[in-house]
Structure formats: structure tokens, C-alpha cells
Nucleic acid binder design. Structure first.
Lengths: 141, 141
DNA sequence: TCTTGCTTTGAAGCGCACTTCATAGTTTAT
DNA sequence: ATAAACTATGAAGTGCGCTTCAAAGCAAGA
């Protein structure tokens, strides 16, 4: 069992964030010592880790709450949850596609900069000249 | 040349968002008809598309503004911009890793659900029983 | 001409995900 | 016994990225 501060240290969150998650019902109510101080169990910590993984993947609080509420209703909500997870996976693929696009654009940009930096005359380019150079390069590929 | 509304339609943004971007200096000042109404040029539209690509990849407004401000200073800022782009690419890889993690977790979850749905008894599982089943499965792999 | 619709501006509002603050009670160490 | 550290709560504040609003000016068709 861990105190608020310990749980915060372990998970890398703040105590305030943990309370926030609990209030928003992403966590099951945390057990208390003599009706006052929170005691986080190992299971709580694991649960928090799962939440963090979802948060890092930009799953909104609202959705996580929905999922958790289905979860605590037990086995009868499995097919609903499967559907949620499926939709979420689709969304992830979408997000990844966006990142891939941006990655492609910026890597092209980086290569362009490397190329420009080979010639000292680059210093004197205006942004419009540079823009046109980049466009012509992009088109010719 | 396009009116505010047309530019909004073409780019899929709202006129308010376009004004917001201009105010935040992601866009160069848009030319005006008789000192009043905005006229968006083809170049403006292209520029906006670039901004949108960055936004879709979660680049914050603040960073885009920084970049644009270097850009309009011309060739002498190329090496600075190269550095920015490099850092941004590193961040992208990070974000993708997070998405990959989440994807792995949720795909495992999905497979688990598919498996559970094979047996009707799954209906009667409590969330704790389910959690333990999932954990044991994860550990044994 | 009058109405409808587009445009302008600044200011205020909003949803999200927390953080910070104010106030108060508890526990531990010295 | 008392100070230092930790915890609790609700409420307010923050930063982001827009959106919405209010008040006003312009423009084109019936």
C-alpha cells in the first residue's frame, strides 16, 4: 500500500492528477485509512499505468471513463467494449497516418535544408525564393 | 483570389480560424480589397495547407509561429530552422512510439475480447476476474 | 430601396486536462 | 510540545485552440 505521494512518485503523476482521475472516475474509489487518507494498492498502481498508456495515446478522459464504467459492469459489456476498442484502433491508425504525413513533409524539409546549407549563397535567399525552390523540388519528384 | 468564405471552404477551416491564424502570425498578413476585405491568394492557400499539415501532427501554434518568424527572415535562419525541424522529427518519433504502445495494448485487448466472446460464460465475469484473466494471459506470453 | 448575406473587429466564452490556491486537519520527528 | 511534512477538500486559475457574440460596415439582387 502506498501513500498519495508514493503513488505519485511511482506513476510519475502528481497527487493532484491522481485525485483528478479519481474524481473523474477513471479510477475506482481508492481505499482510505480511517476514513481520511488514500492508500493505493498494487492493483491501483497497475490500473493507473494502464490509464497513462491510454492518455499518452491521446485517449480523452471522457472516453476512458466510459470504458471504465462498462468494465466495472462486468462480462455482460464485453461486446460493447470490443466495439469501443475496435473504433479506438481505427482512430489510432488515423493519427498515425497524420504523423506519417507530417514526418514525410518535415524529412523532405530537413533534406532540403541540408542541401541548401551546402552552398553559402543560401544565406541571401528571401523566404519567397526559398519557397519557390522547395516547391520546384517537390514537384519534380 | 478568394474571399474569406471561399478560402474557408477550400481549406476546410472556418473564417474565424483563418483570422485566428493570421492574428497569431502563422500566416503573413493577408492582402485586402480597398483597405477592408481579405483576399486570399493561391500562395496563401498553399501556406494554409502547410499549416494544417503541421496542426494535424499536433505542432502547437506557438512553435509554428516561431518557425514562420524565422522563415520570413530569409536564408540566414536556415541552420536554426534545420535544428527546429530535427527536434520536431525527434518528437514525432516519440509520439509514434506512444501510439504504437497503445496500439499494441489495445490489439492485445481486442484479441482477448474476441477470445472471451467464444465462450458464453464470459457474460458472468466480474471486472476483477476478467482483469486477472487478462493479466495471466499477458504474463504467459 | 430594402433586405439578405458577407465581412470586419475586439471581447468573451468554451472544453479539455490539469494545476494552484486557500483552508484545514493529521502524522512524524525532534 | 511544537514544527515540518503530508493530506484533504472545493473552488478558482491556466494554457491551448479555437468558436461565438455583438455591433457595425459593405454589396448585390429583387
Amino acid at each position: 500500500m502506498y501513500s498519495a505521494k508514493e503513488a505519485a512518485e511511482i506513476t510519475g503523476l502528481t497527487t493532484a492528477a491522481l485525485r483528478y482521475y479519481e474524481k473523474e472516475q477513471l479510477l475506482l474509489p481508492i481505499s482510505r485509512t480511517d476514513q481520511k487518507y488514500r492508500r493505493y494498492s498494487e492493483t491501483d498502481i497497475e490500473w493507473i499505468n494502464m490509464i497513462q498508456c491510454l492518455r499518452r495515446a491521446n485517449v480523452p478522459i471522457r472516453l476512458i471513463r466510459e470504458y471504465v464504467q462498462l468494465l466495472i459492469q462486468g462480462g455482460k459489456t464485453i461486446s460493447q467494449r470490443r466495439r469501443m476498442v475496435q473504433e479506438y484502433i481505427d482512430g489510432l491508425h488515423n493519427q498515425m497516418a497524420n504523423l506519417q504525413n507530417a514526418l514525410a513533409l518535415t524529412e523532405k524539409k530537413l533534406a532540403f535544408y541540408e542541401e541548401l546549407l551546402q552552398r553559402p549563397a543560401a544565406q541571401n535567399l528571401t523566404y519567397l525564393e526559398e519557397w519557390n525552390l522547395f516547391k520546384r523540388k517537390g514537384d519534380s519528384e
